[in-house]
């Protein structure tokens, strides 16, 4: 007995960027391989994920409606789980295909339909390493600032000492001069 299923597949944006039809064929080909009859298959949306899945921040969603014998479903799901192009997959049994769905799927088959290119920021950033680099850079900057301050402090300390020495020399000279005049 066949049942109508609604399938939602998250496709890796890298595969979508290369060729949307090839990425779509991966899904539809796998379904047909397991004896499914595909009624509709269309690009539902491309959006940012709420949390990273397989190190991806964004994904393209493919919505399909198909009929498949119940005994073939576990093998089909397992094959999708093993496929790297498919980030997540969900199949749920539905009573009927929505009326608007066939129109939307046909619109995608027309020649005017162009798949917009996914944004580039789909890969997860390696934040810890960047933060570490930043922190090390900051540390170096702080060290450099500290050295500058130290050198300034040393120079500022040195200046008064030189002045005091010069003053002391002047005083000794004056005293010696006064003593010499008294003797004379």
């Amino acid at each position: 007995m066949t049942t109508i299923y609604e399938g939602m597949f998250l496709i890796d944006n890298a595969a979508v960027r290369e060729d949307w039809n090839a990425a779509k064929t991966i899904i539809t080909g796998t379904l047909e391989k397991h004896g499914a009859t595909i009624h509709t298959a269309r690009r539902w949306d491309e959006r940012r994920l709420a949390y990273p899945i397989k190190k991806r921040n964004r994904a393209t969603f493919l919505l399909t409606y198909f009929e498949i014998p119940g005994e073939n479903v576990p093998a089909m799901r397992r094959e999708f789980e093993l496929n790297d192009t498919v980030l997540r997959n969900l199949q749920i049994a539905v009573d009927a295909i929505p009326e608007s769905e066939t129109e939307l799927a046909q619109a995608e088959l027309s020649d005017d339909f162009v798949v917009p290119a996914p944004p580039e920021d789909d890969a997860v950033d390696e934040k810890p390493s960047e933060e570490g680099e930043e922190s090390s850079e900051d540390g170096e900057k702080a060290k450099a600032e500290g050295d500058e301050k130290k050198s300034e402090g040393e120079s500022s300390e040195e200046k008064p000492s030189e002045e005091t020495k010069a003053e002391a020399d002047d005083e000794t000279k004056q005293k010696e001069g006064a003593a010499a005049s008294e003797e004379n």
Partner: peptide, 11 residues
């Protein structure tokens, strides 16, 4: 729960 599984909503 289905939306969370597909990454549409946060856990």
């Amino acid at each position: 729960k289905r939306a969370r599984f597909l990454g549409l909503m946060p856990f």
